[in-house]
Design a protein around this nucleic acid. Structure first.
Lengths: 199, 199
DNA sequence: ATTTTTGCCATACATTCATATTGTAAAGGA
DNA sequence: TCCTTTACAATATGAATGTATGGCAAAAAT
């Protein structure tokens, strides 16, 4: 056989070309041809690695999610010692806000995919799963930050986690739209955080 | 001339057909043909009332925004006497959450349009404008609910308004996705509200 | 050395798209 | 009565779409 190629790497490369198009001109502008052109390959190659456009979109979303996980991990890892739960929590949530052009593009594509998920039960399932995962992580950090006061503090932490994540979602939209500046969004988040951490 | 037709009504009727498609299968599935079929009219008729697809989409979004305003007005009007600022505020924000299938569809289309706005400066402008309008309304209600404490309480109210609206945005997404139940979303909103109203 | 398999390309195909064009019947004004 | 205007329909046009097909060169397997 020729060249001996890393399939997953090729797929990632094509998926990232899809993002570029989706970020610049929306998911609607995504076509096999456009993706191939953006990736600098032939349309036949794209077909070779993805049997259908649907398969391509599915892979691109999975890849997107992996990238988000990385971003979060990097953000948390960048917290200076000692890594207290509140600091880690702040880093996690901040990583969800689109700051640089790259994360902005990723968030943008994420929302576009979210819409598609709303009309695609399988995609929606994966989305909910990832969301629940995030909620659990945030709730865990909250629990460790503000040690169990009251009776059902787990219940409490989950509620606070859903609140924070919903807020971050909304902030992300406002950032993309340009309604809020990054500084203002961060300020809102920080304020809510100190609030959630029981003063 | 024939029939003597109310143009605006016809346009609304066509726009609503567009919503149905966008809500069921995404904005990508929206085509002149599909819209015409969904509205039960000929494609020529659609062309008669909208010179281009773009014009149709623009009108559909304006119409959508009008409907949202109505929903808010109805929600606030339904508040039992006496209409205190906190009660009005709660009604306003609650009206932004997708509850019934109709508002769910409208919210869904709203998000789809939001995405398009991110790649369409003119649309984005209109979006930001509407958003600022909402912020102002919320900030005003906040100001009247918790009378001017501290120095720059206007600044304060704006920050709280942006917080609340971002939260509601995120809650709406979670509702559409099915991550949160309507009751839970309302509970989160109420909690944040009592919090914002100075305790 | 021959045969398979693999990576990739070029092109073809049928469909769908937004839009342009042309036609027609109904209803007003003259 | 005639003539213009309006509401709407039918069909045409050319571009863009997803996918199928056939081929070809390179490398592994035999």
């Amino acid at each position: 056989m020729p060249k001996q190629v890393d399939h997953e790497q090729r797929r990632n490369q094509i998926s990232e070309a899809l993002w570029r198009i989706a970020a610049e001109r929306g998911l609607e502008a995504v076509s096999m041809r456009e993706v191939a052109a953006a990736a600098g390959v032939s349309i036949g190659l794209v077909q070779h690695y993805f049997a259908s456009k649907d398969e391509l979109v599915v892979h691109a979303t999975s890849h997107l999610r992996r990238r988000l996980d990385e971003r979060i991990r990097r953000g948390v890892a960048a917290v200076p010692e000692p890594v207290t739960p509140p600091a880690a929590l702040r880093a996690l949530l901040t990583a969800l806000l689109p700051a640089d052009p790259e994360s902005r593009a990723e968030t943008l594509v994420g929302i576009a995919v979210f819409i598609r998920a709303l009309n695609d039960p399988a995609l929606a399932d994966r989305y909910r799963q990832g969301r629940a995962q995030l909620t659990a992580a945030v709730a865990d950090l909250l629990g460790r930050a503000a040690p169990a006061a009251g009776e059902s503090s787990g219940e409490e932490a989950e509620l606070a986690a859903d609140t924070l994540l919903a807020l971050v979602d909304g902030l992300a939209s406002d950032l993309l739209l340009g309604h809020l500046s990054p500084e203002r969004a961060q300020r809102i988040l920080d304020r809510q955080l100190t609030n959630a951490l029981g003063r």
